[in-house]
Design a protein around this nucleic acid. Structure first.
Lengths: 311, 311
DNA sequence: CTACGGATACAACCGCTGGTTGTGACGGGG
DNA sequence: CCCCGTCACAACCAGCGGTTGTATCCGTAG
């Protein structure tokens, strides 16, 4: 099916006749007739009843019309998503089960009129160069990875400290604990597949290991969170970290336990980054929204790596 | 823009390489390459970065991908809307500011998983033949116009009695009344543009006129409810009937009055009609829904034309 | 260092889609 | 009864979009 054909159908339905639709589309009446005939052949139904005074929709045509309009709107939005200048606000969220997507959902709920596109970039370096080139407008990241200072023209604010919880199966040694301290985790195997070396997450867990002597296995291929959770549920010796805010969609009865971690609570520090000179009109709106909804940071009893910038 | 091209883009993005996408789409690698190149030329942005090991999305490509998927889903739904067998439930609602659309919205809210298409047919005869041919699955109508008994194979139930209210401007003689009786309306001009002769609505108002001696001007072109309401608001000598359930989207301060009518209250009797042998799986669900939400009918103090079938 | 494999891009060729022009059929209104 | 406006059909033709063949690039194995 061809979008020009759909456009022709809508034009003909609105005009009530092929001739006028043809004039509007700057083609001949015969072309419109052929396009409609082809569409009817493709769909297998008659869309118009032809009369000597024009063409009016059949019932099938009436049913098809709103879907055709929606199709054209979707095409419009698709093109707009890559249009330079006045395109939707393009935000990079960190590629993990994270809180950034939740923040963006909240923003979309309070500002449904602002068109959004969400992308996931590899690491903060990619994100920063994308911000500077204008390919994206904002990025949720942990600022900044060790030894790599942020460029002058990139601004940021801390928007959310995301506490980690321990996720275990029912057979785990800590499964019945109401909460665990970081010290209690020493010696237990914590499995974090899908952590890619070189990203901020990897640096975060490296620091966590270095500081408290934990055993975190960040290796192994990532088969998706289904496999991860399934494995954790069935393996008493394994646990994993998971955001407090991650909504588990998992059948009940698996006996999965979510256990808060204390003394201190490891939190992942999300910041919003943007280019100082980015002119996108929706960017201030996003910043204002996050300023109101964002929680405090560096609360007592929480831990973040040293290299996280304070502001 | 061509949907095959969009499909190709999505396939290539999922496969991560053109070759595999080509195999999946049963074309050559060169064809995929050309399609992607053409799409990039149309959009004016690069969608993939080509590597010796395949092709991965650029940031623009990432932003475009969900829109492309949505576009394909919309196309899917559009085709499904006219597919014979297992198509969305197709319901005819009466072509006026009516309660039927409200009922359908309610149904959609409680059963969002059921795909719906709404059409508006001219009169009950068209609706009945559409029901018998299977072109539509259900119809909201007033059953039945005088002298035209319903065929044997069409079933129906009364689902809603819709009370009429008087709508006046602030200068109208009855504007300050808390309620008016039908007898008080005698001599006042009531304007109902857009009532097409030969439809059930026309028959309804004809009966109302005949029974109570009202002055209803059902003639004149229909310029839309905006014009109607605007005129009523500014013309002290004019009033109109409007459903109690019609939500007015109108700037405040116009001083419009909605006045209940009593002794008796004219109600418009909506019935759901369907074909006895219609096999659509969602039809029983709709009937069950209407059975629970439907109000009673022929309540004391209400009026409907004689020819309305009771059940 | 070289050869090879697997990936994309470019060039040449060609069938067929989809446009135009010209014409016919049909039905309503003056 | 004729004329006008409408849509459909036929013939023709350009160009889009496919295929085949080939070049190029890069990572890797020998």
């Amino acid at each position: 099916m061809d979008l020009d054909t759909v456009r022709t159908f809508v034009a003909a339905a609105e005009a009530g006749q092929f001739q006028e639709a043809a004039a509007e589309l700057a083609v001949t009446q015969q072309a419109v007739s052929k396009r409609i005939a082809a569409l009817e052949r493709d769909l297998g139904v008659r869309l118009f009843t032809r009369t000597p005074r024009g063409a009016e929709l059949t019932i099938d045509g009436q049913a098809f019309l709103p879907h055709a309009r929606e199709l054209l709107r979707a095409a419009e939005r698709a093109v707009a998503s890559v249009r330079t200048g006045r395109r939707p606000l393009r935000v990079d969220v960190i590629a993990s089960r994270g809180a950034a997507t939740g923040l963006m959902r909240g923003f979309h709920r309070s500002h449904p009129e602002i068109d959004l596109d969400v992308v996931m970039l590899f690491d903060i370096e990619t994100a920063v160069s994308a911000l500077r080139s204008g390919a994206i407008d904002a990025s949720f990241r942990a600022v900044a990875a060790p030894g790599r200072p942020l460029p002058e023209d990139i601004d940021f604010v801390r928007v959310l400290d995301e506490p980690l919880q321990l996720l275990t199966g029912p057979g785990h040694a800590l499964a019945s604990a109401r909460s665990v301290t970081v010290a209690q985790l020493v010696g237990h195997r914590i499995w974090m597949p899908g952590i890619v070396p070189g990203t901020e997450w990897a640096a975060y867990y490296d620091d966590l290991v270095a500081e408290f002597g934990l055993t975190i296995e960040a290796t192994g291929p990532n088969f998706g969170s289904d496999v991860l959770i399934d494995t954790v549920a069935d393996t008493p010796a394994l646990a994993t970290f998971m955001s407090e805010q991650t909504r588990l969609v998992w059948p009940a009865g698996h006996g999965l336990r979510r256990i808060p971690v204390t003394d201190p609570t490891p939190v992942y520090p999300h910041s919003l980054l943007w280019h100082r000179d980015n002119p996108h009109p929706a960017l201030p709106t996003l910043r204002a929204h996050l300023a109101t909804t964002g929680t405090g940071h560096d609360a007592p009893g929480t831990w973040t790596p040293d290299w996280v910038l304070p502001r």
